Simulated scan of single mutants.
Amino acid sequence: MPKCTRNACGQEYEDATNDAMACQYHPGKPEFHEGLKGWTCCKPRVHSFDEFMDIKGCQLGKHSSEPKHKDDPFKADLTKYDDVLPSEPQESAGTNKPVSASVAAAAAATGTAREPEPEPIDEDPAGIVVPVGTQCKRNGCSAAYVSEEESHQSNQCQFHPGKALFHEGNKGWTCCKPRATEFDEFLRIKGCTSGRHLFVGTQPDKKAQTEKCRRDFYQSGSNVIVSIYAKKINRDVSTIEFTPTALKVHLVYADGKEYDDDIELFAEIDPSASSFEFLSTKAEVTLVKAASAQWPALESSS
Rank of each mutant, 00 (worst) to 15 (best):
R6V: 01
A8L: 13
D19F: 02
H26K: 06
E34N: 15
G38S: 08
G38N: 02
T40M: 05
K43C: 09
V46D: 02
V46R: 01
S48H: 09
S48P: 08
F49K: 05
F49Q: 09
D50P: 08
F52Q: 05
I55Q: 07
G57C: 02
P67M: 10
P67F: 12
P67D: 13
P89Y: 04
A101S: 12
A113N: 06
E117A: 09
E117D: 11
I121C: 02
A126R: 13
P131S: 04
G133A: 02
R138Q: 11
A143T: 12
Y145K: 03
E150M: 12
G162F: 02
C175G: 01
C176W: 00
E182M: 12
F186H: 02
G195I: 03
R196G: 10
R196H: 15
H197T: 08
H197V: 10
P204A: 07
C213P: 00
V226E: 00
K231L: 08
K231G: 01
I233H: 00
S238E: 00
F242Y: 08
L247P: 04
H250S: 14
D260E: 10
D260L: 03
D270V: 15
A273Q: 15
K282T: 05
V285H: 01
A290R: 12
A290G: 15
S292F: 13
S292Y: 12
S300H: 08
S302C: 06
